[in-house]
Design a protein around this nucleic acid. Structure first.
Lengths: 143, 143
DNA sequence: TCACATTAAGTGTATATACACTTTAAATAT
DNA sequence: ATATTTAAAGTGTATATACACTTAATGTGA
């Protein structure tokens, strides 16, 4: 049947939020033995890949409000997985992954791979490809 | 270029969460004059459509943990938009939208439509169609 | 140089999310 | 009929999210 745009079942935001809840529950459950939540795994993996970055820049990469990043970093700093170091410009705080953070990341990666494989399998490779295409488009369009 | 499944930039969960943050920020900003957040609009619209439902059933419809629904209902009950009424089975609480809730929903709908139209326009109709297809698949597969 | 504007980041507050645990009520087995 | 099990919902706690406001440091123009 054709989708009715005035129906809540076709709300882009509601649909995305629901899908995100369901997928996140899976990733969180699979990552559980690592002690990391999906969000935390993503944070470590991103900072590991980018290297040290100012808060503002990292928040931009993550498409996340700057203040959300501040709060999300807190448990990672507390666990010693992230350090928040000074820059010559004293307004800036550089976010860097620590050795312990990198170790936790690498230990969790096989679990992440399980969750990731399951997601691809459940959706089917073709659907997964088109999903990644659209969410990358959202990331690029919604600056 | 082909996506590398071991790269965080191709993480289904991270991608969905980022896209959801960006889209939600847009819906929230557009809905602002209504006083409703996107989540609250979705909650009202869903309950309006389904009629009175037990908490557990409504949580299932929303793909949301039961306890999350309890917390999300709180501000809506406080504003008088939702009521939580008893059933003959005294374990069950029926969630129902109030007259005031229905009024708030209908007043917010034109704003929702603006956000929805923008999302479709930004993605393009074809991408939007495939996105809705995949997120519906996630909803049906991840029970 | 110094007042003012700009920029980076943190805090207060509120909602969103879910797991572990608890409470209360209904169903069921003996 | 009662003890046990099952089912529905709430609470404690922790993280996730973002807006409004604040603080501190840098940049800039007169």
């Amino acid at each position: 049947m054709p989708l009715n745009p005035t129906d809540v079942t076709s709300c882009t935001c509601a649909g995305l939020r629901k899908a995100t809840r369901l997928i996140s529950q899976n990733y969180d459950a699979t990552l559980k033995p690592s002690g990391l939540k999906a969000t935390q795994y993503t944070l470590l993996a991103t900072v590991h890949k980018t290297g040290a970055l100012p808060m503002k820049q990292l928040a931009s990469v993550l498409g996340m409000d700057r203040t959300t990043l501040t709060r999300n970093l807190k448990p990672m700093i507390h666990k010693g997985f992230i350090q928040n170091e000074a820059d010559t410009d004293q307004r800036i705080r550089l976010v860097r992954i620590t050795k312990e953070g990198a170790r936790a990341l690498h230990e969790a990666t096989p679990l992440w791979q399980v969750a990731q494989n399951r997601a691809i399998e459940v959706l089917g490779q073709k659907n997964w490809n088109s999903l990644m295409l659209v969410i990358n488009k959202i990331s690029s369009e919604e600056e």
